[in-house]
Amino acid sequence: MKYFILKIILFCFVLAGIYFSFMYKISTGYVDENYPKFCQEAGGLILGVSTASQGISPQILEDELQEFKFEKPIVNFAINFEQSQYGDIYLNSVKNKLKKQHQKGLFILTVTPASFTTTKNLDEKALRKLDQEKILGKISNFSKAPNFDYISNCYPISLYNAIYPTNKWDNLVVHANGWNEFKLKSNSYTVTKEDLTLWKKQTLEFQTKFIKTQEFSKLRLQSFVETINFLKEKGDVFIVRMPLTAEMLALEDEKWKNFDAQFDSIAKTENVPFLNYSQKELGFNTYDGTHLVSESAKEFTSLLSKDIKNSLQIDANKK
C-alpha cells in the first residue's frame, strides 16, 4: 500500500514537474498574440476590440504625448470582439490591470458596434456567464511576467510548441506593450493583392451574416459608462471610433443608425472627448476592411496623438 501511494505521488510530481517546465519554456518565447497584454501593470490603457489592438501603437502615444507626463507604460489591452467586449468582466480586468499607485493615465476607449453587441435574446445572466468563459473571465492575474495563470488557462494549443512553434505568423508582430502590428511583408510571406481582395470579401460576408444575429446590449453600454467613470478618476479618458472602409461603415450604419449620435451624447454627458474617425476619408489602408496595416496604424496613432494633444491643450486653456 505504502509503495502504491509513493508511486502515485511520484507520478503526480513528475507530471507536474514536466508540465511546469514546459509552461516556463513557453513563457520565455512566443506564447500567442494576446499574451504580452497580460504581462505588466499598466499606467494607461487602450481598450476595445481587434481594430484597436492592431490599429493603435502605445509607443507612439507615449512618445508624442510626453509633455503631458502620462503614467507609463501605456498598454494596448484591446483583444478582439469575442474576448474583450465591454462588460463587467472587462471592467474588472481593467481595475486589476492598472498600477496600484496610480498617478495620471491616458485611457483610450475605442468604440465600434461589435464592442456592445450580444447574440439576440440573450438574458443578462446568460451574457455574464458567456463573458465569464472568455480569457478575461478565466484568469485573475492580468499583470505578471511570466503569467502562468494565462498560459495554464488560455494557451489554446499543445505545449510541444515550446520546442517547435507552429502558431506564430511572421506577418503579425506582437509587441511587448500589447500592440499587434500587421505587416504586409515578412521574411516568410508577402501578402498579395489577391489575398487582400479575398480577405476583404470574406470579412464583409462574415460581418453581413454575423450582424444579423446580434443586437445591442444595454448591459454592455452600462458597463462602458461605468468604465469611463472609473477611469476618469485615474486620468484622461477619450472615446475613439476607429477608421474603417466605406463598405464596413455602411454595414454598421445600416444596423445601428444612431451609433455616432449615441456615443456623442454619452461623451457629452460624461464630459469626455469623442474622436470619431469613421466618417472621414483619411486614406488609411486595411488588410480586410477593418484592421489597419502597420504603416496606417502608425499614421493613425500619430493623428490620434495630435488630436488628443489639441483636446488636452484646449482643456488646459479653459482652466
Partner: peptide, 17 residues
C-alpha cells in the same frame, strides 16, 4: 509506459477545458 504517458499528455494535450 507511465513516463511516456506523462510526456505525451504534457506535450500533446490541448488545454481547451
Amino acid at each position: 509506459a507511465y513516463f511516456g504517458y506523462i510526456i505525451i499528455i504534457v506535450l500533446f494535450g490541448i488545454n481547451r477545458q
